[in-house]
Amino acid sequence: MKNIITLNDLIIKAVEELDEERVIKLASKALKSGMDPLFLLDLIKEGVKRVGKLYEEQKYFIADLIMAGLIFKEVLELEEIKAQFQRKSDEIEGKIVVGTVKGDLHDIGKDIFKGLMEVNGFEVIDLGVDVPEDAFVKSVIKYKPDIVGLSGVLTTTVESMKDVVEALVQAGVRNSVKIILGGNHITREACEYIGADSFTNDASEGVKICKQLLKSK
């Protein structure tokens, strides 16, 4: 028992220290010795959450968040995980559709946010980059998400984001979702201008906001 507790801690610590090789080695070892894949993923998530905390404390920076996301992805790729892991629907906190809006091909901010949201129990439907407004409308109708996340790096995306919100209004589905904007250039004024419910300049803050948005729905 003592050994298993130690292994758990080691896995969490290896993720926290962003030691990819060690995480994979320990994870494989744990799975071979019979650890439940879902339990292993909880450990990885705990490690990623600690990375997020170090980021909030400004001890870690964006490059570290990306590395944590890459490690998480690597673990998901392990055969045992792929074979056995299927999320039970009652564990899902909420559903979100994300995409980088029309006219913008950047995906890094969106991908960091997506990774953190998944770790925090959200089902994420990723529409990719340069996504036109009608694709957002269609996926809101199809997937019935709780939240729509609009991402953008370029300042031009303010207009594209506004177009998405207006298209959702036109389609009569605006009030069925909460809308959050993500991007460095988004200010309170820009958020009001666009007509979204919330905005963030920071992916990990975005996760907290989404949890609040879920409660307020």
Binding site: K102, G103, D104, L105, H106, D107, I108, V129, D130, P132, L154, T156
Partner: peptide, 13 residues
């Protein structure tokens, strides 16, 4: 470097 749908040339990752 690719042109996005709005004619803007962008630099994807």
């Amino acid at each position: 470097f690719k042109m996005a749908s709005n004619g803007y040339i962008q630099h994807p990752e």
